[in-house]
Design a protein around this nucleic acid. Structure first.
Lengths: 294, 294
DNA sequence: AATTCACAGTAGAAATTCTGATGATCGACC
DNA sequence: GGTCGATCATCAGAATTTCTACTGTGAATT
């Protein structure tokens, strides 16, 4: 139902080349080439940079969000027409930061997902990176730390997610026998989530005047992995209070510092919304209100 | 860019028959018939009742809003790609009640319309009827008195529009020498806006216990006409305070009763929004905040 | 310089979609 | 109750679009 030419354009981007796009669409490379050319002619803009892998031109990039919205709208229209038929569940791509996914997010969306028969396509990335996913139309909504919405989007404040500095008890005994001192912090192996993750650095700089890069650290881009690292006594790091709570209670982790690093989360979404997206946003807002601090 | 079959379906509805739709689309009747049939087959639903004029089935009706949204999105996408090119201005259909249009509405949208290069398609109807226009996809947003949004839509409170009971001074002297009495009200010719307009009845019932239909009344479905009727001394009726103000000052009208009939207005819109719709909603909200009471 | 790779272009084949003719259905009217 | 007029469905073939198979070109690789 969506224009063939748009689908070809999208496939080339996702597959990286005309040939693989053709394979996916069960066409020849030539046909894909023609479709894309036609689309470019109609819009009067070059949409693809023919490199490997193929990349969108600025114009092409601006087209992507509309494609995602088109998809959603088509799916919605079909549901509105034949609500009880199984069209295959509606697939919604959303960007979530790993810690939200590991803590409050699933509970937040569970009910809506069930009732509306959705399939969520959770794209996990760092807090601030989820925003880029939205800009490129890869997701229709995302949890982000950025407060300002892009043009065409809206943002709602979800709440504050406090992180605490934690480690296994024996890790503390070994590395921080006298508490968090500048010296100890320069030696003790930290755990950070990912490359874009600057919470640890901010903490070290703010409270101990330590500069970036001057501390040994594991990089563990997985919420569960992060936790497991900490519990295993391999390092110390910032863990969402929500997630740490049970482990603290069981004595597997200890709280190293009174300070909390607060991360303010926002729900960003294209204003397509559609009934389902509106419900989802509502549910996320509600659940965040319950799970997060103000 | 929008699916041919959808366009055929729409044209048949707008023109009332397959033949005229074919003429508009520069096709044969046969082609239109085939397109519609194809669409119906794809969706697994009959969309059109083949009567004269052709009407949508319930399924067809549910499809209409999506068509309107599709249109908007396509226009938006084109603008996003080539902002400076003149694509022909973006056409936005909005439902407005006559009194808003005659008073605050134009000022509210003027700036956005200019800056974004829009063409507004104002559909004027009674306060509550504008809602139906939204449901059928005829408009993308509307000013209505209904507070509750439909599924897939959102509603924002704009403010209160107070109406006062007014007439020309000589009309008062002639019909209401002793003020508004039950007897006089049963005799004096009222002016009401339209068939769906129940403000006058509500007023008579609430304050004087008069039943519906027991008063003579002109029906004048035009805001200016309504005003002219009143100024000419042909009747009395409820006029927006905003609109009456100048006439009261000039002595052309007098205020007949201390009571005000308050109409609460809401802005309803499909959640497509799109950047332009978002700006429009913002502007309308702002202007309403200035022009209307809380 | 030769080779490989990836996309553009072209001609004819295939598929789609249109036209024009015909048939079915329904209501109006005599 | 039959006929006419109007309107939509259906069908076969024409027209158009879109695809495939193949060739050409330029850039990267060796």
């Amino acid at each position: 139902m969506i224009d063939h030419r748009l689908l070809a354009f999208e496939a080339v981007l996702q597959e990286g080349s005309f040939e693989r796009a053709a394979r996916r669409l069960a066409l020849t490379q030539s046909a894909v080439s023609q479709r894309v050319k036609l689309l470019e002619a109609e819009l009067g803009q070059v949409l693809l940079v023919r490199s490997k892998p193929a990349r969108p031109t600025p114009a092409g990039r601006r087209l992507l969000p509309y494609l995602a919205q088109l998809r959603l709208m088509e799916a919605e229209a079909r549901r509105a027409l034949a609500p009880r038929q199984a069209h295959g569940p509606l697939r919604l791509a959303v960007g979530v930061n790993a810690d939200s996914l590991a803590t409050w997010f699933i509970g937040a969306v569970a009910e809506v997902v069930q009732e509306e028969g959705l399939v969520l396509d959770c794209v996990v990335d760092d807090q601030d990176h989820t925003h880029a996913l939205l800009a490129e139309g890869e997701v229709l909504g995302c949890v982000s730390t950025r407060p300002d919405p892009m043009r065409g989007c809206a943002a709602e404040r979800l709440g504050v997610m406090p992180y605490l500095c934690a480690a296994a008890p024996d890790f503390r005994a070994r590395w921080f026998p006298r508490g968090l001192t500048r010296n100890a912090l320069e030696q003790a192996p930290a755990i950070v989530f990912g490359r874009h993750d600057d919470m640890h650095e901010v903490f070290l700089r703010r409270h101990f005047g330590l500069d970036a890069g001057h501390y040994p650290h594991h990089v563990v881009p997985s919420s569960e992995g992060f936790m497991a690292f900490a519990v295993a006594g391999l390092g110390y790091g910032f863990i969402p209070e929500l997630q740490a709570r049970a482990h603290l209670a069981r004595g597997e982790l200890v709280d190293l510092a009174p300070e909390r690093e607060d991360v303010v989360l926002y729900w960003h979404h294209w204003q397509v919304q559609s009934p389902v997206m509106a419900r989802l946003a509502q549910a996320i807002g509600d659940a965040a209100g319950r799970a997060l601090d103000r």
